[in-house]
Design a protein around this nucleic acid. Structure first.
Lengths: 228, 228
DNA sequence: GACGCCAAAATCGTATACAATCTTGAAGAC
DNA sequence: GTCTTCAAGATTGTATACGATTTTGGCGTC
């Protein structure tokens, strides 16, 4: 139940709302997503809820177990490595391309993402900061004008959020690292080489900052997570 | 209605069957996929059919137009370029990785794909040959043991099949080019450098062999396409 | 004859109903 | 006391029903 103005809940908007909740860690890996329960929350039928859950399962954010229901996905260690492997193939080259096509408006929009992330972080809203940090990456793929790659990156970013929920060790600083600022500098200068290198090492940093041994998690209440 | 042994049609198997039909060009871009019509063909309810169509739309093989129905996707020229751009980021590096991990069984399985493709081609079954040619690419990603990347590649390969249906100019030789054979040699020798280079140029060849100006297509009958 | 309008038919979107499967918990045997 | 069994409850899978939107075809007007 985001959005103050009463949203009309269709399968698509329900999926978006759930995805946001997962991305912001209001829904944690392993949480059961009962169809009746969600249907009641959004005041809609199981039909629409099922469509939304199916969409999320295709993005690997939700795992559907036959006859047992839907659960927020719990990426394995192997999957975690694979996600960052895929990102390291896609994002650096895309960042290079973005750097050479970047307009002033694009730069401004990226900067506003960083600012909003900074604000959220200081307001103690780690979930939202993490979401905005992901949007920074998505925006770059969009600026590169690669719709197809952008869709893949968006999926990988969302899955990364699950991975962070499970394996992150330093609780405090999310992507507040200077990486995004340094990328901004490269973008402002239209320096494709630098952008590619910075993105590459940024992703490597992210991966190495994970503790791929210990899992942490604790599923809470659904209604609680989706309430605003 | 593939599979001689009577398959039990669930949303998943229906989606697989439709995907195969699209991949083999029995269903051409733009074909209308009416829910009632498909439901009748598979002797199931619209509920299951809708789930299958949704799955395919998430893979961009089917386009869902609200209140108007499902159609086999018709990738634009821009989308065609994007698909091969994405493939060129993912597959060469994956081929390199596969080359270094390749076992004898893997090699044999790849060879059997090539053989089957050759057979299909000489039997005049271009659709099946194209499908098997795609499976060659998918198999490489699987051998690299990259499930996540393999899923992306599989999607891109399927979409490539649509692109080929729309923009291919030389009707005869599909992927019968020597590219796959040369890749096999690199794999057999465990030569990662060669595998990466060969894959890169193979994908470039594919892209440049497209005629990204003229579209060709002609939707036929549904029941015809799915009959076997 | 061409265009526009309106009603009927067809098709999709959503809700509900029923069937199949799984989970839960209590009763009984050892 | 622990384990097994089985039945009741809960949850998902599929089918059907109904409402909303679009398409189609005919009629009338210009």
């Amino acid at each position: 139940m985001n959005e103050l103005n009463t949203t009309v809940w269709t399968p698509d908007t329900i999926a978006q709302d759930l995805e946001r909740a997962i991305h912001e860690h209001r829904l944690t890996p392993g949480s059961k997503l009962g169809e009746d329960e969600i249907g009641e929350i959004y005041a809609t039928s199981r039909t629409s809820v099922r469509a939304a859950l199916q969409a999320l399962s295709h993005k690997r954010l939700v795992e559907l177990k036959r006859n047992r229901g839907a659960f927020v996905a719990q990426p394995s260690v192997k999957e975690a490595r694979e996600v960052f492997e895929a990102r390291s193939l896609l994002e650096p080259r895309t960042a290079r391309s973005a750097a050479t096509r970047m307009s002033d408006e694009d730069l401004a929009r990226l900067q506003s993402h960083i600012d909003a992330e900074h604000t959220a972080l200081h307001a103690g809203d780690n979930g939202r900061a993490l979401y905005l940090s992901g949007e920074f990456h998505n925006e770059i793929a969009r600026i590169a004008d690669q719709v197809t790659i952008a869709a893949f990156v968006a999926e990988l970013v969302s899955r990364s959020s699950l991975i962070i929920a499970l394996y992150w060790q330093r609780r405090a600083a999310i992507c507040e690292s200077t990486a995004h600022h340094m990328l901004m500098k490269a973008f402002a200068e239209g320096d494709g080489d630098a952008a590619e290198d910075l993105m590459k090492s940024h992703l490597l940093d992210l991966l190495t900052s994970l503790d791929l041994k210990n899992k942490t998690s604790a599923p809470g209440s659904l209604a609680e997570a989706l309430k605003r």
